[in-house]
Nucleic acid binder design. Structure first.
Lengths: 335, 335
DNA sequence: TCTAATCCCGGGAACGTTCCCGGAAAATGG
DNA sequence: CCATTTTCCGGGAACGTTCCCGGGATTAGA
């Protein structure tokens, strides 16, 4: 288990450690032959560079911190994978922490990561803005941070976001064109920007198509399937079921759909559904769920690119990337 | 952004760096008052220890490598979270890599992690055994490795596994007791031990209850929903649909169920379903899917415990933990 | 042929800890 | 009061790299 080091190679070849180091870092001031000799004997001696020593001497950790709300959520597990792949290839390691939709936990995670000397952070914040000011402070101090997905367009920091307003507008428009006359929006937490943006898009569509205010409604629920179920219970008991639901995400849609089906409603004949942030499950339920697909991989990768750029080039400008998606129309929303 | 170090504190208090180090590591040979003084001024000066230097000097990385087939799979995202929580609390960091059900990728991941000097590895191997011999070799050299979930009971290494045989026996028995007379098992890859174990459990039940061989069948599919869908197509075209399916996992069950529903079959009246490794979706489809729930968190945590024990106590014995689960009976399998 | 530039390489400090060793001061024992 | 132990602390090497500095050898320029 004893590791062979740069010194062993130097001693073995009777040269200096500097030269060995130079050979590995492909520096200019080394003769081609000696470089090749060093690499060859290093290979033979089974040398692998010690990343920890390297980190200490260059004082950077080559670690990137990633904070997401919930890994079990398919969206964020894709984010994790995408960044994992992208950053590993660039020589970085990714430390993932989840905040469980809890601001206190989130801040704790970020501080843990900073204390562990990550070279930069990618954060998909939870609802609420209690921590944002702290992050912005760090960001303004020059600490490389990129916000992903859950952050408002007005935030003054590098970020990668989805065009929620437009795509929830399109999703709603689709329902309108299918001639559904009474449409409710099941919204997420009010203080979560993606929720409010999606609600805005919904409202915009309602107004553009002159829906009378008694024919649409925005109901705040949450992000979980159970919350979709609960709201249906309430609506049924107050006999207030519309023709169609546009939901803040697939989970809420699936929960609501499930409960309505159990109560004997026919989907989409009695009630139509459109979700958001397409999940794997969307295609496994009956009827299949119409949903807005986001380019998750691309968004995550972009966040990685912006972050690395900031790390390698500290006074690079604040960057904002806004992505568009695709409305996958399935049986849950067509007559 | 300049970090304050142990030396700064030493200089400021006019003491040695050794003492400062001792104060932080709570070593015995330091006076209580000086220790408190040091901690206090360190706090005031905003000192945070540099983990990289610590790692170098103790030559251990305090990193644990975790290799899973697929993070997007709900089971493994739970594993990731559980280990993340457990190991972070113990002062370790977790580096997660996914192998995408690909042996080559898996080996590459493991080697990357080893080169990055992880102190130990937790591996949930993909199907096939090409890499296992390499891992066992490392294990026998004393490298701390714990296998999780996907590994046969006969493997001579520390491992945490689920009692697949018994619980697929119970699941099958449940279908038998519901009076289903013709039951097929949709199995995963043949060379994946969890698949073959689950098939064994199924067969055991069939034999115990004296099912004639024309009334049961084991069909090899895969682990994905689409594979469940495809097999149904085939069975329908050869007019070979049984009364009940016991499936290797929920995804296959959900795919198969979906396709049967689309073709007009009633679940569970025409065909019943039981899955395995309960997913979130199990409760969102109609009818809800009966499934075997595994104690994922506990299993992952146990793997972490065994690993840490091995790291801190290199000649600790090989350990095997076998877990049991629970059959959650829902509408998809009751008359 | 002499000077200046270029090319290589070695020496050694630095990164921020831990930890071993030895010694001074204090406490203990008789 | 002296010898011995205990308590506490400082010095400095070590961990394995990188990187700056300087100097010798080689080449280029006239």
């Amino acid at each position: 288990m004893k590791h062979v080091t740069i010194k062993d190679i130097a001693r073995h070849l009777n040269i200096s450690t500097s030269s060995v180091s130079r050979a590995f870092n492909n520096k200019y001031d080394i003769k081609k032959e000696t470089r090749e000799l060093i690499l060859k004997t290093a290979e033979e001696m089974g040398y692998v560079p010690n990343p920890i020593a390297k980190k200490l001497s260059q004082n950077c950790s080559l670690n990137i911190g990633l904070v997401v709300p919930e890994i079990i959520n398919g969206y964020y597990s894709k984010v994790v994978i995408a960044l994992q792949e992208f950053l590993t290839e660039k020589g970085y390691q990714v430390l993932v922490m989840q905040s469980d939709e809890n601001e206190v936990q989130e801040l704790k995670n970020v501080k843990t990561l900073i204390n562990n000397m990550v070279d930069g952070l990618i954060i998909a914040p939870t609802a609420g803005n209690k921590n944002t000011s702290y992050y912005i402070e760090k960001y303004n101090e020059g600490y490389p941070i990129v916000f992903l997905n859950r952050v408002s367009e007005t935030l003054k920091a590098s970020k990668v976001i989805f065009n929620n307003i437009n795509w929830s507008f399109f999703a709603t428009e689709h329902l309108i064109k299918q001639q559904y006359k009474k449409i409710y929006h099941l919204s997420g937490y009010k203080n979560l920007c993606v929720s409010s943006e999606r609600a805005q898009g919904f409202k915009k569509a309602m107004q553009k198509y002159n829906f009378p205010s008694e024919n649409y409604k925005i109901i705040e629920t949450g992000l979980l399937a159970t919350e979709g179920m609960n709201i249906i219970e309430k609506l049924i008991s107050s006999d207030d079921i519309p023709n169609a639901f546009f939901c803040v995400n697939d989970m809420v849609a699936l929960g609501a759909m499930k409960r309505l089906k159990d109560k004997g409603y026919k989907i989409p004949d009695d009630v139509a559904f459109v979700g958001f942030t397409e999940t794997r499950t969307a295609e496994l339920v009956t009827p299949q769920l119409t949903s807005v697909k986001q380019p998750t991989f691309e968004m995550a990768k972009k966040a990685g690119e912006i972050l690395l750029n900031k790390i390698n080039n500290p006074n690079s400008k604040t960057e904002t990337a806004i992505f568009n998606g695709k409305l996958n129309i399935r049986k849950s929303s067509i007559r």
